[in-house]
Design a protein around this nucleic acid. Sequence first.
DNA 1: TAATGTGAAGCCTTTCACAGCA
DNA 2: TGCTGTGAAAGGCTTCACATTA
Lengths: 212, 212
Amino acid sequence: MRYHKIPDETVRRLVICLRGLLSLSERGYKNISSHNLANSLGLNPWQIRKDFSYFGSFGTPGRGYNIEKLVKQIRKVLKLNAVHKAALVGVGNLGSAVLTYSGFGILGFKIFAAFDNDPKIIGRRVGNIKIEDVSNLQTLQQRKIEIGIITVPCEAAQETFNKLIAAGIKGILSFSPCYKTDRKKVKVITIDIAMDLARLPYYITTRQITNV
Amino acid sequence: MRYHKIPDETVRRLVICLRGLLSLSERGYKNISSHNLANSLGLNPWQIRKDFSYFGSFGTPGRGYNIEKLVKQIRKVLKLNAVHKAALVGVGNLGSAVLTYSGFGILGFKIFAAFDNDPKIIGRRVGNIKIEDVSNLQTLQQRKIEIGIITVPCEAAQETFNKLIAAGIKGILSFSPCYKTDRKKVKVITIDIAMDLARLPYYITTRQITNV
DNA sequence: TAATGTGAAGCCTTTCACAGCA
DNA sequence: TGCTGTGAAAGGCTTCACATTA
């Protein structure tokens, strides 16, 4: 049982496992083997076992894992055992899609605020969130919101980054690549749709097929 | 000069370089050193040079790279030198965001068709694309469309996958994780927003900050 | 028996350091 | 002199094989 640095790829898979386990749990399952869990998620059994081994050993040889117990452990390791407050900036189509997505709650996220700079949008409600003026971004610190989601057009991304960092945001999920960020102050995860699309042709015309 | 398998991570960075170079080119630059290119993209100079070395050597020692020449080479390697036809399924907020995104063209993509199953949406236009009924998906093969973009709700993802594969689609960019796909027939790249968000807290409360 | 947990091997990627070239 | 291209070293992740345990 170790508790060192967990590889980035393991963190990625742990989230996938967590969701798989939650879904199994909902459907009434109590236990599962690494083999069956792996199968249902397109992973390898030994990979999963290795991943879990980075933070403990929770299985029962011959039986497998108790789902509830495992979920609790993964939540703890990923710091998903308390609700995280998030704020979203940029309420266009993409922002609205993220705002109305219902899958975050089960993972411990709740979007508490949304911002835009368009007077036509400010004041409207999306879901049960009232859209505020971006000039209010500075209030995030007082409101103890630590996660930012950037869904503004590319041109506005850099400015939004700066404002979020100034507002004490600790982690950012961004849909615009931004290379001029002080990565010592915040952790940034970028979703770069155009880049992901542009990777496809290389793999299509080449024989070689890999996982994502 | 080799032409072997290019590492997945290199493919990822090549797209980033390509966009960086295109942007430099637009701003009138003709040449750039690995050092400057790397700096502007948050990468390392030696990493970039190594990446390029997988498919040739195009630089001039003491001078750097000719941007136009390099762009041409990267496009060729990534198979982005011809227009790729894409189709999108699921025209909700997310789908509309992708449909109206203007950054694909420069990378060689054009969305030629969009589908939904909601009679209220079918027939409408988004941008200059008329939304079709999903039952028309089978026509993709005749229309020589080889790339699919899945922006349907989770529940509908599996069925959409199956239909796209049946329609002869070669590569899929999906916003719903789907683990039951025949990865020998198509290359799938998944954008899993909830998963990416859920990875953040682990890195926020840990000191360790890494690139994405 | 059936499945876990993990050291060790193998493989892939990143980083380094420097020879070589304009 | 300045920057490229690349072999070699270092580092990190995946896979394997099997001892171990309920």
